[in-house]
């Protein structure tokens, strides 16, 4: 199948190095300490953060840092065919773990000893790159909850199809079976916290693809920063002196 037309356009009309439209919104869940909605093209996710709060299960309490938990779920209506998935299937367990580890790397857990932070992410509409979208939503939600972080974490995926590196794969491109590199970075510290690929790629091409994904991450980081700053300003001027 042809994923890049001779004119250099992808199936949804993007250029190979073009990202889908992104949109982030803070404050989607009223009762949560922090919450956010994040959209990458047709992929839509919602994230809610509760905590830092008292540890529910005393045996899990850590005396010098916070316990971070994460739960990833997909809404039944998120995919093309409506499927009733059992809770805790292998895929969502794996993604929960990935998100937890990525977020834990940036949260300053030592500042909140003997407490727990719960991150819930739910996919409302899946169109490829849910992992990245969830991480971006979780970052926004954590910042909204006022949880101290080393840096923002942003994530973006990139692939390699028809011997062209493609940024931010959608579902059709994702299911083509080509390599799919998901990268999560700390933009300020310039460090990688997440790198996943489930195929083989030659070294030099992999470097190109990864670099492309990193560029995507940086663009998302700029956007997220703007959203957060705008939100902070609003809260501040409303509160008044």
């Amino acid at each position: 199948m042809e994923f890049v037309s001779p004119e250099g356009l992808r199936l949804d009309g993007r250029r190979p190095m073009e990202m889908r439209q992104i949109r982030g919104e803070i404050g989607a869940v009223a009762k949560a300490d922090g919450s956010a909605f994040f959209e990458m093209g047709n992929t839509k996710v919602i994230a809610a953060v509760y905590g830092p709060r008292e540890v529910e299960n005393r045996s899990q309490q850590i005396s010098d840092q916070a316990l971070v938990r994460c739960e990833y779920t997909m809404a039944n209506f998120s995919t093309g065919d409506r499927m009733r998935k059992p809770k805790g299937d292998r895929r969502s367990t794996e993604i929960s773990l990935v998100i937890r580890q990525t977020m834990e790397a940036c949260i300053l857990t030592h500042l909140m000893p003997r407490s727990q932070i719960d991150i819930f992410v739910q996919v409302l509409q899946a169109d490829g790159g849910t992992r990245s979208a969830c991480i971006n939503a979780a970052t926004l939600a954590l910042a909204d909850a006022g949880i101290p972080m080393r840096d923002l974490v942003t994530s973006c995926s990139a692939g390699y199809l028809n011997s062209t590196p493609l940024l931010d794969l959608n579902y059709v491109e994702d299911s083509a079976g080509g390599p799919d590199v998901t990268v999560g970075i700390l933009p300020k510290l310039d460090k990688v916290t997440l790198l996943q690929m489930d195929a083989k790629l030659p070294m030099d091409i992999f470097e190109n693809v990864m670099q492309l994904a990193i560029e995507g991450c940086k663009a998302i980081a700029n956007y997220i920063r703007e959203v957060l700053l705008e939100n902070t300003k609003q809260l501040e001027y409303r509160r008044g002196p």
Binding site: K188, L228, G240, P241
Partner: peptide, 14 residues
């Protein structure tokens, strides 16, 4: 009103 009294001191993470 607030921008008059308060210079842009808002920051985001990082």
């Amino acid at each position: 009103l607030s921008s008059k009294s308060n210079s842009n001191a808002s920051v985001a993470v990082a």
